[in-house]
Design a protein around this nucleic acid. Sequence first.
DNA 1: CTGACTGCAAACCCTTTGCATCATC
DNA 2: GATGATGCAAAGGGTTTGCAGTCAG
Lengths: 185, 185
Amino acid sequence: MRDSAEKGARARLKPGMKHGGSPCCMELEGGIRNRGLRMTLPRQLVAQVLEAAEGYLSAEEIYSIIREEYPAIGLATVYRTLVLLDEMGIVNRYNFGEGRARYIVTEDQTAEHHHQLVCERCYKVIKYSDFIEDERELYRKVESVLSVKHGFKINRHIVQFHGICPDCRKKEKQENENESSSGDI
Amino acid sequence: MRDSAEKGARARLKPGMKHGGSPCCMELEGGIRNRGLRMTLPRQLVAQVLEAAEGYLSAEEIYSIIREEYPAIGLATVYRTLVLLDEMGIVNRYNFGEGRARYIVTEDQTAEHHHQLVCERCYKVIKYSDFIEDERELYRKVESVLSVKHGFKINRHIVQFHGICPDCRKKEKQENENESSSGDI
DNA sequence: CTGACTGCAAACCCTTTGCATCATC
DNA sequence: GATGATGCAAAGGGTTTGCAGTCAG
């Protein structure tokens, strides 16, 4: 069960929305046209799957979700589309050290900068930008102190809180119960 | 020049310290003995190179640094040693999305929790734990707010400021000058 | 129609593994 | 000397690329 679409951060192709319409697809289509490229089904599908996802998806996961309904689509095309979407700034590519990349739709650039809660088990991500009072101000201050002190030109900051999401906590509890009730060492 | 040891976060084997003695080697030796494993030259060398490094190194970089003086050492051994060091908690493995892992000696666990300045060009890292006033307190507050709000069990946080270090800023400036003075398009 | 896009398979790159040999304990 | 560690080469796994056929514009 290495890479099924059944992992926590799952997504599905909703049969009712076969073609375009979602914010992501609109943006994609715009970008595509601008570049003189072509809008195709695989490109729509990848964008749609990522849009529907609750968190980071690997290429393989995206591929297998799409394949459920469109078995003709190839993995290479998924990869090529992801490169395109990344270049266009529609998705972002991340790496959690599993030996594979994971993708997520880029936060709306007009939206506020955000920080993240990442589940260490299922890679579901919760973004938040409802910072508590003084939080924003503090980062500004810290960045200015650091850039002066160390001569860095600071471009951005990454703030992630890692832990276990509610769903996975439930699962872990269940697993522990099963373990202790079975005869395992 | 994909992976030479000449990148910014460089390190060298100091001829004078061929065998052990560094904090890392001591810790390594202790851990090794405890496990009934054997202390060998390649293991010392990998630990030493990482200890001397100013930032994150890739396996290939470590390998090529060692190879300058010990051409007989194999890349596979470097990888195996890195797995060992990682398991023993002596080094940490990170991934910056280049398609390869990078390693760095684990911060001293007795030392204060710290945040990082990472150079996006050479992967040099500056750690700091001289937080400005209220910084520490703020993270505590944020974590408690988030864990209540989202039901996460928060284990740790990662705060990194990404940018360009002073050395690389200099290099970039030089490169730009060279570019504009040469006849390139 | 034309050229961009696709699926397939082969190539690539980083990393891991199998195996005979070597060296630590 | 026994057994863990090594070097080499081959295998793995994720990702990219070459190519001929396909399809959007």
